[in-house]
Write a protein that binds this DNA or RNA. Structure first.
Lengths: 243, 243
DNA sequence: CATTCGCATTGACGGAAGTCAATCCCATCG
DNA sequence: CGATGGGATTGACTTCCGTCAATGCGAATG
């Protein structure tokens, strides 16, 4: 009956609005920080690690831009399956919604600084809107790319893509640069296997096996569990399926 | 070696820019239509069925809004795997890109009317930008929802979700309305099994089997291959995984 | 009417990835 | 230092879905 695709499930959402359980780690971590004049109508805030900035179903009266750190946006199915729908880094915009409520939850992966804007203020400031739009368009492209990953890539390709995505110079999937030499790189993942799995549409076991397979092939070494040394960036790049 | 996930593949893209083959059905179908004054800086155009409006890798100097009809946006992997990343209907915006080239291809499913805007014109018209933003935000939510489908749903759930998405009154996944009575509905899919498969991250055989399974369970009847009669909308809704 | 062509359906089979469960590896802490 | 616990790894088994191939079906065409 229940699909075998269910993966490791999260505590079931309590009601039909898909609000995640309050038992999730971390809690409100928003701390107002003295207003900075560079951000005209926004309010700069500091958020602790593993804290929720908002949850699916909350009233969407504010939107955010990430100054530094990393945030993940995720959605839950009522039976507890989770999908991380976006990974955000500095500059990215989140909390936009066409509806009066947020369509997903936002949780920090590390301590972050964000700028919070009133939703109405954004709509009334053409300048602000234009600046944010550029970021939104980039995120649309990233979502398209991620749909390809989720819909068409094998587990190994997904993990390889994810690792490449974490390589500093080559972030954002544009790893087809002219000099794709066999140089190495060290990558900090900053996410647990479970979080990676929920981002890649896999289970944590499959993610772990993929890492082991990459290690077995001599493409990576796993130094400190969260730290991956990519021996041959070029070979890794070819495993992503995009080249 | 080659992942078993490769599915039925399309003619391999010719170069590293992932430009789809010119052999794809349909061709340039843009026909300028007399300027209408309701659309300040846009140019209204008619596009034939199965025509490409732009292709992945083309210079992204224009963006579009769909007036009526249906368009699909897709991306190709170099080995020919295809993923339809968005299905667009009236009002939706497409052709935005953070890069100077389009990140995906746009092909009409039926004859359409579109409004084409110069990219620069949009960026300089606050009013236009604001109006389009609302649609973009809705599309972001749709992409999030689709990521959940691709990452976490079974084949049957994917197909059920797709069919529900086509039910007129309940489009856009908001099928949890108060009166979810056992009423029936007739749905025009307007896509081949292969196109549906490429949208849902499946193969056409799996899509076909899912339809057969739904028929076997008495939930739908397939009248004219493209026309599905949903006997019990409520039961169908429960199969989507979202309820 | 018979042919053809594109698409859909169905079956048999295999493999990639999910499930369940045991073990391992650190980091933290009493 | 040993105990504890959260995460990661690995193995055995299962299953969903992809692959390959045969057949069906309706529309268009000669």
């Amino acid at each position: 009956m229940k699909p075998a695709i269910a993966q490791r499930s999260y505590p079931a959402a309590v009601d039909t609005t898909c609000r995640p359980p309050a038992s999730a780690r971390g809690h409100v971590g928003l701390q107002p920080v003295p207003r900075r004049e560079e951000e005209p109508q926004g309010q700069r805030q500091r958020v602790g690690q593993h804290a929720h900035i908002f949850r699916e179903g909350d009233r969407a009266d504010r939107m955010y831009q990430l100054v530094d750190g990393a945030v993940m946006l995720y959605k839950l199915l009522p039976d507890g399956r989770r999908q991380v729908v976006e990974l955000l880094s500095a500059g990215d915009v989140f909390g936009l919604s066409a509806l009066p409520v947020y369509d997903c939850s936002a949780e920090t992966l590390v301590a972050c600084n964000v700028i919070a804007y009133d939703r109405t203020a954004v709509e009334q400031s053409p300048d602000l809107l234009r600046r944010l739009s550029a970021h939104v368009h980039a995120q649309l492209c990233a979502l398209h790319e991620h749909a390809v990953l989720l819909g068409r890539k094998s587990a190994l390709e997904r993990v390889a893509t994810f690792v490449m995505h974490c390589v500093p110079g080559r972030g954002g999937f544009n790893c087809a640069g002219p000099r794709c030499g066999g140089d190495s790189a060290v990558v900090r993942l900053g996410m647990t296997r479970q979080e990676i799995a929920d981002y890649l549409g896999l289970t944590l076991e499959t993610v772990s096996r993929a890492f082991s397979e990459l290690r077995r092939r001599g493409i990576i070494a796993i130094d400190k569990q969260e730290e991956v040394r990519v021996h041959d960036v070029c070979r890794m790049c070819q495993l992503t399926g995009a080249h």
